[in-house]
Each structure stands twice: as C-alpha cells, then as structure tokens.
Design a protein around this nucleic acid. Structure first.
Lengths: 173, 173
DNA sequence: TGCAAAAATGCCGACCCTGCATTTTTGCCG
DNA sequence: CGGCAAAAATGCAGGGTCGGCATTTTTGCA
C-alpha cells in the first residue's frame, strides 16, 4: 500500500514490493498470486471476520437478522473505528480495473462462504440463501460506497444500515 | 470457444487463437485485451442487448417493471431459444478464476449501464438505482445459474422469473 | 545437537501486453 | 480506373508476470 500510494499502482512492480519487504521476488509468488492479491490482503481478512461473526450469532436467529447483526458485530469488534486502509483500498480499486476484478472475485468467495454459514437458519419467505446473501452484500457494498463518497466523514455503520433498510423495504411490502 | 473446448482454457494461448483466426498475434491485441475477453465476447453482446431492451421500454413503466420486462424482451428477441454457447461460457467461467473475474467485471459494467438507463423511472419506495439493479441482477444471475444446474433442460426464463419473484417477496412485504 | 520438514531462493522458460514504426487494405473521389 | 488518405494489420522489441524445478537456508523439535 505504501509503494502504491507513493508511486501509483501501475508503477509498482512485484519486484519492488518484494525488495521493500526484504524477500526475494520468488518468495512473493509463494504467498500471493499477483500484486493485486497483496494489496487486497487486508480486505480478505475482513471478509473472513465477517463470516466468523455470522457463524457466532445465536443459532435461533433468522438468516436476515443474523446477517445484519454480524455486520454490526464486525464493526463493533473494530471499536467502531473503521480501518482507513479499507477506504484507501476501495478508492484504489475504483481506479484500477485489475484491482476491481480481484475485489469482485473476493466478493464472490465471501458470498459463497456466507451462504454456507447460513445453513439451518430460517430465511424470510424461504428465499434461497444465494439470493438473500446477494441482497445483503448489495446493501453492504452500496452502504460502504456511500460512506466513501462522503469522504468517510461519518459513521460507516449508519450508511450500511440505511442501505440494508432500503433493500428490505421496497415492493410495497 | 472451439479451441477452449478442445484443449482446455489454460492450454490455449493467445497466439493459438490468433493463428486459428488467421490474424497476427498483434492484431488480436488490437481487439481484445486478453484471452478472457475474447471468450466472453458473446456475453458482452447480450449485456448490451439487455441495456438496449431496457431503454426501449415505455417511459411510463416503473423501474422494476421495466427491468423485468426487458429481461423477457431480450429472451423473446432470441426466439425464446437461449444460446447454447451462453451456458458453455458460464460453465467455463465456473472452473476458471480468470474467466470468472472478467465475467464479474462485465457484470459490474452492466450494472452501471442499467442504473443509467433507469433514469427518470419511478422506483419502489424510492430505493436507490444501485440497489434496485443489484437486486435485479442477483435474481437474473441466480435464475440462470439454476437453469444451468438443471442441464439447461427447461425454459430459462421460467427460472429467472422465479428468482425475481423470490427477491421480490421476502421480508413480510 | 542433529535432522527432517518447511520456507526461501535462484534460475529459467513460456507468456502476456504495449508502444512504435512499417506495411497492407479499404473506401472513396475525381 | 488510378490515386490517395485513413484505417487496419503487422513485426518487433522491451518490460513484466507467473510457475516449475532444483538448491540452499531456517525452523521446530526429539
């Protein structure tokens, strides 16, 4: 991230990252498939935390309730102080297609993991897990994007909750 | 697609594609940024058609109605006979992360185009276009995936409509 | 202390991607 | 029909990425 901020993502070579980390070019490849993965590594950690948070919700909670609660839990577990790096990474991904692509892939993986973690929970109207998770992640994503668009000024959780309310509400229900 | 089916996606080099198409390696790059783009080119055409279909819906229709109708319109414009290649490509993308990544990127582009094409339409409960489109595309994707999981036996539209009904229904609305 | 497993490294070949200069093809006008 | 400018295709070279394989260095532990 430091090198990227200093020189721009495209200018940073894997070799430079390896050197800055005092490892060989080859060793870098033992850990990351590409530059993109290295930059997005932090994101990966968060997605795992989210899945863990969901698994740890009480078993009696419904799927949707548990999903929303796990987002809150994760946020609280950061002491309600979101990682600045997170916003930085997302801004970067907006500018660099290759990063975005990798981020989308991570998102897809997260979706599958969440679906799995929902096993056994009651779902609104029996909606399929894939659909429920997709709706949830859409809300999460749009909420966080809004937060970033607002220069990260306020509480990200607020924006996320708003977006989730918004997907919950429509269709004259 | 032919080369991919014959030798496997990973084994096919850009050079081989160029040769099979009787163009030079360099010319390939003038048209596609990478192998993945070439394979997914057909998909790109469909997404464009979908956006066009949406634009051509009567202006008085609400956003959600227009979205659902445009999916039907597109399907009908294929004479209700879905492209076999489409299923083939999606199956391929399931196995190859690099293809999946590219497909997800295309999906993101499609989402932005649809949001734009929704301008001026009334949206359920005033939900943001990003969210509405995300919900719609989730339904579309899950529906089509279901169709593929069922060996493309039945009418894909049926699965799509079911999935869309499903995202429309929950949350006790 | 010694040694086997794990991690890191070096080297290399195959490929991908792009900019630039050059050649070929096209489209069209007089 | 010939000529010509624009567009398309090509060749080439440079800089990167990725991954296999053999080798060396570190680690963890009996």
């Amino acid at each position: 991230m430091r090198l990227t901020v200093e020189h721009g993502f495209d200018q940073v070579t894997v070799e430079a990252i390896a050197e800055a980390a005092n490892i060989s070019r080859r060793t870098f490849s033992n850990y990351f498939a590409c530059k993109e993965d290295a930059v997005l590594y932090g994101e990966r950690l968060y997605t795992r935390s989210l899945v863990r948070a969901l698994r740890e919700r009480p078993a009696h909670e419904g799927a949707w309730t548990a999903l929303r609660a796990s987002a809150r839990d994760l946020y609280v577990s950061w002491d309600c102080r979101p990682d600045r790096g997170w916003a930085l990474r997302t801004r970067l991904a907006r500018k660099h297609p290759s990063l975005l692509a990798r981020q989308l892939t991570n998102h897809a993986t997260l979706a599958r993991d969440l679906e799995e973690a929902l096993a056994g929970r009651v779902r609104p109207n029996g909606i399929r897990p894939e659909l429920l998770v997709a709706v949830f992640l859409s809300g999460l994503r749009v909420g966080l994007n809004t937060w970033i668009d607002e220069e990260e000024a306020q509480d990200p959780l607020r924006f996320v909750e708003e977006a989730l309310d918004e997907v919950e509400a429509p269709f004259g229900r």
